[in-house]
């Protein structure tokens, strides 16, 4: 690392309740440019809620979300413009079934970012080619395997060069043999310098690819640290308990 990296995302005291139940108890988190942060924790720990709060698809009850220093949790900001700067990939891909693979990838470029169709499709085909799916450009998502669909969904998310990529347990719905191809793609994105915040259950992958690992439990950050140290030498008892349970 050279000069102090610029902070892309800062979360300060994020709170969120569903009725009586508070699922996020004041989360603080910073992500530097080109950093890959893995968010781990048991089901219901608030990982998905936190990611959706960053994407402004989940309202928060308190706290501040800063994207490159700009307070995007302010009700005065244009949420569509903010979301256009952040990519989000879902557990169940959520590709549009009525659009071809290429149209899925190019939709936002054309409709939100005003690219001409030819331009958007040139870039879209490049992206599809990079994941070996250029031949499926005119196919519809249902024709693809889960792993292929998820890789298309990732391409859809990065087609507009977002400043931050959010991955919400993107391999949880996949066959084990298809997980590898998706993880390989994420790894190559990480190596290319994409800033990534990912909720994941893949501990091995988190250890290898993430710069930093954050354990969330019951809506709080239990421990956060560099991946190697986090797994080899966790400080918190809670972290040790969690890691011993997920270890195979």
């Amino acid at each position: 690392m050279s000069a102090p990296a610029e902070t892309v995302l800062s979360l300060r005291g994020i709170r969120r309740s569903f009725g009586e139940v508070e699922v996020l108890h004041g989360i603080d988190l910073d992500i530097a440019a080109h950093e890959v942060v893995a968010l781990i924790g048991p089901s219901g720990s608030g990982k998905s809620t936190l990611l959706r709060a960053v994407n402004l698809t989940e309202p928060i009850d308190d706290g501040v979300v800063l994207l490159r220093g700009e307070d995007i949790s302010d009700p005065r900001v244009n949420v569509d413009r903010v979301r256009a700067r952040i990519g989000l990939v879902f557990q169940h891909y959520n590709l549009f079934p009525h659009l071809s693979v290429l149209d899925n990838v190019t939709l936002a470029s054309r409709v939100v970012h005003g690219l001409r169709r030819a331009e958007a499709e040139r870039r879209g085909l490049e992206l599809l080619d990079s994941i070996g799916l250029a031949d499926f450009a005119t196919s519809f998502p249902d024709r693809l395997s889960g792993g292929q669909q998820q890789r298309v969904a990732i391409m859809r998310a990065i087609a507009t060069n977002p400043e931050l990529l959010l991955l919400d347990e993107v391999t949880s719905a996949l066959d084990p043999e298809l997980v590898g191809e998706v993880l390989a793609l994420i790894r190559s994105l990480a190596e290319a310098g994409t800033t990534i915040l990912m909720a994941t259950h893949e501990m091995t992958f988190a250890r290898e690819v993430a710069d930093r690992v954050v354990l969330l439990d019951a809506g709080r950050v239990v421990e956060s640290g560099p991946a190697a140290q986090f797994f080899a030498n966790p400080r918190e008892e809670r972290t040790r308990a969690f890691l011993s349970r997920v270890a195979r």
């Binding site: 308190d62 956060s224 560099p226």
Partner: peptide, 20 residues
């Protein structure tokens, strides 16, 4: 590099009403 915001698990479960 890591600043644990770790609180005791007991406090996490309590319905602590924090002033906005």
């Amino acid at each position: 590099p890591s600043e644990p915001t770790s609180a005791s698990p007991a406090a996490a479960t309590a319905g602590d009403a924090v002033a906005p």
